[in-house]
Amino acid sequence: MNEALHSIVYKNSQGFVTGHFTAMAGSCEVIIETSDQELAEKVTYAVASEAWRIESTFSRYRSDNIIYRINNADGAPIEVDSETSRLLDFADLCFEVSDGMFDITSGVLGKIWKFDGSSNVPDQRDIDRLLPKIGWDKVTWSKPTLQMPAGMALDFGGIGKEYAVDSAAQLARQITELPILINFGGDIVATAPPISREHWLIGIEPLALGQNTVPPQVALKHGGVATSGDSKRYLVHKGKVLSHVLNPKTGWPVANAPASVTVLSSNCTQAGMLSTLAMLQGADAEDFLRSHEVEHWIQRR
């Protein structure tokens, strides 16, 4: 374990203990309403350890995990463990309900799309070369065996962080019934409302590029909150902001996608799925979320 990266810093304020750490390329925090420092540190360490475990297990940037084995199988069948099976089942569900728009094989597009705020759009010929390597329907998945054509690759980035938050929250609940808020870079779970106030108050990040409207705040008692958006990851092309959410069928950013979609649901995995699927709906994002009758907030430019 890299001690420099895998460290936790604690802060105490007004009856709450907050543990800060880094995981999944972002800042994470665990807030516990307690005066018991030892308990707070036990919970936070369990949460952080779960985040680090899931990151190492499913990161596509490592060469020692199941994702590496799948992506380097060169067309051979791979038998996967039960946890990976659950994520593959969920990815399959997302693919089906989105009519193929949510596709965990589309991560290869990240080789040519760099959403760094610039105007550097890839050449269409480069996009066309990658499109044949995309398509969950080209993968054979029969639990516990997965077989994928050579040259294709899986990426759990679209569901991994939300899954990690829910998994960590489950561990925290096993340790204590005290109110806990877990935040992995904007993917959030509350195990219970605070004792000292009615709810947790979650701010939605305002839009980038000079948007002046004050975004709403989410009053969260329990459940999950997830946000999909382009406040940090976007391109500017022909005067328009291009979202980092890509259409796997065209290889281009989804047309008319909202700048930000935030969804509140019973857990973070569900909220993340709905917020991402709404982004993939483009101009129809609002109608999509209204049809699912979930509390949501959408920001457009």
Rank of each mutant, 00 (worst) to 15 (best):
E3T: 13
H6A: 01
V9P: 00
K11L: 14
K11M: 06
K11I: 11
S13I: 10
Q14M: 09
Q14V: 10
G15C: 06
F16K: 14
G19K: 05
H20G: 00
T22G: 02
A23R: 01
A25F: 11
A25K: 12
E33N: 10
L39V: 03
L39D: 08
T44D: 07
V47E: 04
A48H: 04
E50V: 02
A51Q: 01
W52I: 05
I54R: 01
E55A: 06
T57L: 11
T57P: 05
F58P: 11
R62K: 07
R62H: 10
S63Y: 09
D64N: 15
D64P: 02
D64C: 09
D64M: 11
D64F: 13
I67Y: 01
I67A: 12
N71V: 03
N71P: 08
N71A: 07
A73S: 15
A73H: 03
A73I: 10
D74Y: 05
G75P: 08
P77D: 02
I78W: 01
D81F: 13
S82D: 10
E83K: 04
T84H: 07
R86Q: 13
L88A: 03
D89A: 11
A91P: 01
C94M: 15
D99H: 13
G100H: 10
F102W: 12
D103K: 07
I104W: 09
S106Y: 09
G107F: 09
V108L: 14
L109T: 01
G110Q: 14
I112D: 10
D116L: 05
N120T: 00
P122K: 08
Q124I: 08
D128S: 14
I134T: 06
W136G: 04
D137W: 09
D137S: 14
K138H: 14
W141L: 06
S142F: 11
P149G: 08
A150Q: 11
G151S: 11
G151T: 02
L154H: 03
L154Q: 03
F156M: 15
G157L: 03
G158L: 02
A164L: 06
A168K: 05
L171G: 08
L171N: 10
R173F: 00
I175C: 09
T176H: 12
P179S: 05
I182A: 07
N183E: 06
V189P: 02
I195M: 00
R197G: 06
E198F: 04
H199S: 15
I202Y: 03
P206M: 09
L209W: 05
L209A: 10
G210S: 04
Q211E: 09
N212F: 09
Q217R: 14
L220G: 06
K221A: 11
G223Q: 04
G224N: 05
V225H: 07
S228A: 03
D230H: 05
D230A: 12
K232A: 10
L235G: 02
G239Q: 06
K240C: 07
V241K: 15
V245M: 11
P248I: 01
T250D: 07
G251A: 06
P253L: 10
A255M: 07
T262F: 00
S265F: 03
S266A: 14
C268N: 13
T269I: 11
T269V: 14
M273H: 12
L274C: 04
L277G: 06
A278S: 13
L280T: 01
D284Q: 12
D287Y: 00
W297K: 03
I298S: 11
R300V: 07
